[in-house]
Design a protein around this nucleic acid. Structure first.
Lengths: 152, 152
DNA sequence: ATAAATTAGTTACAGATGTAACGATTATAC
DNA sequence: GTATAATCGTTACATCTGTAACTAATTTAT
């Protein structure tokens, strides 16, 4: 018989979250992002700028939970690929002002509905009550995970 | 007023899963894994071998959802650090037989309870009903995410 | 019995990532 | 007003990661 004290990886919440998140991210990449030559991070930046044009890199950091170096690199590539345009803030010459280019907007308009559709199909396995419950649960877990961080 | 058609990243399930999983993984790393000089992947291998001694690398792949290359590399490092011991299967000389060394067992015995404790504190933000519900929901989402994979 | 196909695991290479250090600009303190 | 500190973003470096190619052992087919 098995010792019930042993940690069972397949029931361990952090592990399950990691596996699920990876499966989902890969699914999205394979379905919608790879074929446009976008990384997940680039796609996230497109997504926030599609909704909030003119954000600075630091604003994107706050909105995406990405590291500032990761944002810097992804933005540099997006600009290089003609998907973003950057100018400098008049008020603060350190701050960038980022907007989607025409090409970037087209990407956003194309990928956005696909992403929503993916989410819809993913959530289809849950009843609407569970969908709502999941949302609350994720909020609570996120807050708790932050509270458990050593730095907190 | 805001266009409700726009994709809101902060409500987008794949994004929320990714952020939560990262926050949790980092929390665990910072709290229990970093200070033993283990990566998350090394820790996972320790965890499965603590419960199932004698697995092969391929068995670990199946049990951890890790890539075989990632397993190969993590196992090599664990052996180099004296935390694992490897022998070859008699029946099939390609297969490795992996077991924790004394040092590996001590790590397992030390980290396992800490990991469980972390999970417990994380889940404390949910009622017991929500905890059960979450488990079911994650199972369903995982199956659905696999079903939505292009390769499926 | 032998050739072809499959499996286990490693290696090689390119690209991604995290951390720390950095230059430039702005804010704060005195 | 000047020195100090904080902020914005980039660069450098080491490490990690994924994909594909590879060797060795085993299985399958004939």
């Amino acid at each position: 018989m098995e010792n019930s004290e042993l940690l069972k990886l397949e029931e361990f919440l952090p592990y399950r979250l990691s596996v699920l998140s990876n499966t989902v991210s890969r699914g999205i990449s394979a379905a919608y992002v790879d074929r446009f030559g976008l990384s997940i991070r680039e796609w996230r930046i497109i997504a926030v700028l599609g909704r909030f044009p003119g954000l600075s890199a630091a604003d994107i950091v706050k909105r995406t939970e990405m590291d500032k170096v990761a944002v810097s690199r992804a933005v540099a590539r997006l600009i290089g690929d003609g998907r973003l345009e950057r100018s400098l803030s008049d008020a603060d010459k350190r701050r960038s002002v980022l907007v989607l280019s025409g090409e970037g907007k087209r990407l956003y308009d194309q990928i956005s509905p696909m992403a929503k559709n993916y989410e819809e199909r993913l959530l289809k396995c849950l009843g609407s009550e569970d969908q709502d419950r999941l949302s609350d649960i994720l909020d609570n877990l996120q807050k708790q995970a932050i509270a458990l961080r050593p730095s907190s």
